[in-house]
Amino acid sequence: MTVIPQIDSFADDLTEIRHDLHAHPELGFEETRTAGIVAKKLQAYGLDEVHEGIGGTGVVGVLKGKGGGNRCVGLRADMDALPITEASGVAFASQNAGRMHACGHDGHTTMLLGAARYLAATRNFDGTVVFIFQPAEEGLGGARRMIAEGLFDRFPCDELYGMHNDPGAAAGTVGITPGPGMAGASFFDIAIKGIGSHAAMPQQSRDPIVVGASLVQQLQTVVSRNTPPLKPVVLSVTTFNAGSAYNVVPDRATISGTIRYFHDDVIDMAEARVRELCAGIASGFGVEIEVDIRNVFDVLINDPDLSQAYASAAGEIVGEASTSLEIEPMTGSEDFADMLKIVPGAYCRVGHAGNVPLHNPGFVLDDAILPVGASIFARIVERRLEA
């Protein structure tokens, strides 16, 4: 592995930044402290422009290279944390109750800051770099809000690159999936309105729990009996809430969950089937069922040529043998996909030490990944905007 020496020289500074961000996690659109730190760092590094408040708490930095080229490369990192109570045991654990950087966005933010510091000091590229620090990636639509507020109108990019840490991959490896790389996602909320009663006289009720239990089972047929086998989809019911007493049949139950997909025709079919099943069960049981389904993530599609370019740049840092363009697509989702619908680019996964999965209360990001990620970000700029 050959981390850029200048970045390696301030690796301890990156660790300090990451630990501070980790200790003060903020949820989507609440990243006020994080955004303030990012903006101050970018100003201190000498970027030509620093813009705050884009997409709520988003920050964008602009840096010009030595040459007069007019091409622009965008680099993006996410900043938000998750509503999880930390149980990692690290000395710099979250000080904000019920908040945790369990997905490593503190690391992503730090890596992009490291790349900005190095590129601002060297400016060994011909063109412009746009550093995008995005809020609210975790299902709240931060990318879409930044785009709606003119992100790429104000800061047009020719190419765009992002990355994510991967505790499930070997340390020091980089993987990219050309083409569809991560699933799109819709979230659904289903409200069942029945009739409550005394639990000893259930014949007087129209029990929403029984209705809901039947519905949860029927929803599984969307995958097993309606989806073409060669077009993967995942439908998961993740909450089922009803009742508050031993002796009361409640009058209401709510169910929610997610659908993950790679094909537009499949998600259209799945959403339609969820609505049809709810309508049929409502009629059969004599209850009312309200359904709210909303698309939250698009399918993330990596440009094949830029995926190759990204892998080549990463190979200069981690070694060619440690990079792969044959990583299987993930059924997880990432709203960087919304940006890639507008600007061609690629998204990579960087492996690191540790075996606790993402979104787990015990997740620990390996600090050794920080100069690696920063170096990959910097090197793709130097290669795509070669002076």
Rank of each mutant, 00 (worst) to 15 (best):
M1N: 11
T2Y: 14
T2K: 11
V3M: 07
P5A: 02
F10I: 04
D12T: 13
H19Q: 14
P25V: 08
P25D: 06
L27H: 04
F29Y: 14
F29R: 03
T32S: 06
G36W: 07
A39M: 05
L42Y: 04
Q43W: 08
L47N: 01
E49R: 14
I54W: 13
I54T: 10
G56N: 09
V60S: 02
G61L: 05
G61E: 05
G69L: 04
N70S: 15
C72K: 15
G74S: 11
A81R: 02
A81L: 11
L82N: 03
I84H: 13
T85I: 09
F92K: 01
G98E: 00
G104I: 14
G104D: 01
T109K: 06
T110Q: 00
M111K: 03
M111V: 03
L113K: 03
L113R: 00
G114R: 00
A115Q: 04
A116F: 02
A116D: 08
Y118P: 02
T122D: 09
N124V: 01
G127I: 05
P135F: 03
G141H: 00
D153H: 09
P156G: 07
E159Q: 12
E159R: 12
L160C: 05
Y161H: 10
N165L: 13
P167D: 03
G172R: 12
T173R: 02
P178W: 12
S186Y: 12
F187G: 14
I190S: 10
G194C: 02
G196A: 00
S197I: 08
M201P: 04
Q203T: 10
D207Y: 06
D207P: 14
A213I: 00
L215M: 15
L215S: 07
Q217I: 15
Q218R: 10
L219Q: 00
T221I: 05
V223S: 00
N226L: 02
N226C: 11
G243C: 03
G243T: 03
S244G: 13
A245H: 12
Y246Q: 08
N247W: 02
N247H: 11
A253N: 06
T254Q: 11
T254Y: 02
G257P: 10
Y261N: 01
D265M: 06
V266G: 00
D268T: 15
R275P: 05
C278L: 00
A282H: 15
E288F: 08
I289C: 00
N295Y: 06
V296Y: 00
F297H: 13
V299A: 05
I301S: 11
D303W: 02
Q308L: 12
A311M: 13
S312F: 10
I317P: 05
V318Y: 09
S324L: 04
L325T: 07
L325Y: 09
I327Y: 07
P329E: 05
M330C: 08
S333W: 01
I342T: 08
G345E: 13
R349E: 12
V350Y: 09
H352N: 14
N355E: 11
P357D: 06
P357C: 05
L358F: 08
G362Q: 15
F363N: 02
D366G: 13
D367L: 02
I369R: 08
R379C: 14
V381Y: 05
R383I: 05
E386L: 10
A387E: 15
